[in-house]
Design a binder for these strands. Structure first.
Length: 273
DNA sequence: ATACGGAAGTCCAAGTTCCT
DNA sequence: AGGAACTTGGACTTCCGTAT
């Protein structure tokens, strides 16, 4: 059974209605509200087909239908339109993106969440990308004073993680540079997932001369890299959480996400060079 | 012209929720 | 608890296009 034009219209109407009402939608509602030129019985038959195809679900026998995950997927991918943004909204996005273009991924995600919340007047929730599979691009050890350093790790996705490390003994700048080069030599190119205890222990075993200082730096660096694994969720506009769903808010959000999907802009945002 | 099949409509009984 | 309102599926009818 294929998803013909009429089924697509009914599915779109039903999901539009469900977004606004958050209640199961019946065939009569669609027939009255959307004037598709067919009776509620016909819509009911089509809805039964859509349910068989997995696009709709029925909470109980006498309720209307609600969209399934598969239904939402096709709605977002093929059925919904894209709302044109106003000049003010477009300008707001441009300014925000310019502000974060060279920033850390955390800032990018937080700003993305803010823009979504601003455009839709809803609570926006954005989940950080999974960094486990990203590769370590570079480690930079920066000396604060003789016993305090900052270790900065950068991944190929532009995720920047900095960690303060206090040393028990003073370290001179030449030694720090040598250790920095050593860590880059051993760790860059590995995924965060691959940098495990085994790898850390191997470095400690193999490297002679800096054992004492490496034994202080490596465990902290390891913990810091492991923390990057935790996928953070960024929430903005939480005061809007009880706002009623509004159809065109979803389309505005999609319009913004379409902008983000343009690879040239994404590259600019994520570029760390 | 007639028969046939599929699409679409009407009617009705039954299930569920909500309100009094 | 009981009635109103709403929904559904099923049975039946009507309409329309196509084949003979």
């Amino acid at each position: 059974m294929d998803l013909d034009e009429r089924k697509r219209h009914i599915l779109k109407a039903l999901i539009n209605d469900y977004i606004v009402s958050a209640e199961p939608v019946g065939s009569r509602t669609i027939a009255k509200r959307y004037r598709l030129g067919i009776s509620s019985a016909t819509i009911r038959n089509e809805m039964a087909d859509l349910e068989d195809m997995g696009y709709l679900e029925q909470p109980h026998t006498s309720a209307g239908r609600v969209p399934s995950d598969k239904g939402y997927r096709i709605y977002v991918d093929q059925l919904m339109g894209v709302e044109k943004l106003s000049q003010e909204e477009a300008q707001y996005i441009r300014t925000s993106i310019q502000k974060i273009a060279m920033g850390e991924i955390e800032r990018i995600i937080r700003e993305t969440s803010k823009i979504l919340s601003f455009l839709t007047n809803y609570t926006a929730m954005v989940m950080a990308p999974e960094t486990r599979k990203s590769t370590l691009k570079r480690i930079q050890l920066v000396s604060i004073d003789t016993t305090h350093i900052v270790a900065i790790a950068i991944t190929n996705f532009g995720v920047v993680k900095s960690t303060n490390i206090s040393l028990s003994k003073a370290i001179d700048i030449d030694k720090l540079v040598a250790i920095n080069n050593l860590l880059n030599d051993k760790l860059t190119g590995l995924t965060i997932e691959e940098i495990n205890l085994e790898v850390i222990t191997k470095i400690q075993r193999e490297v002679r001369g800096y054992n004492e200082i490496l034994n202080e730096i490596l465990p902290i660096l390891y913990d810091s890299l492991k923390c990057m694994d935790d996928r953070e969720v960024y929430l903005e506009g939480s005061s809007n959480i009880f706002n009623y769903p509004e159809y065109n808010a979803i389309e505005k959000a999609r319009s913004f996400l379409n902008i983000l999907d343009r690879k040239d802009i994404l590259y600019k945002i994520l570029s760390c060079d």
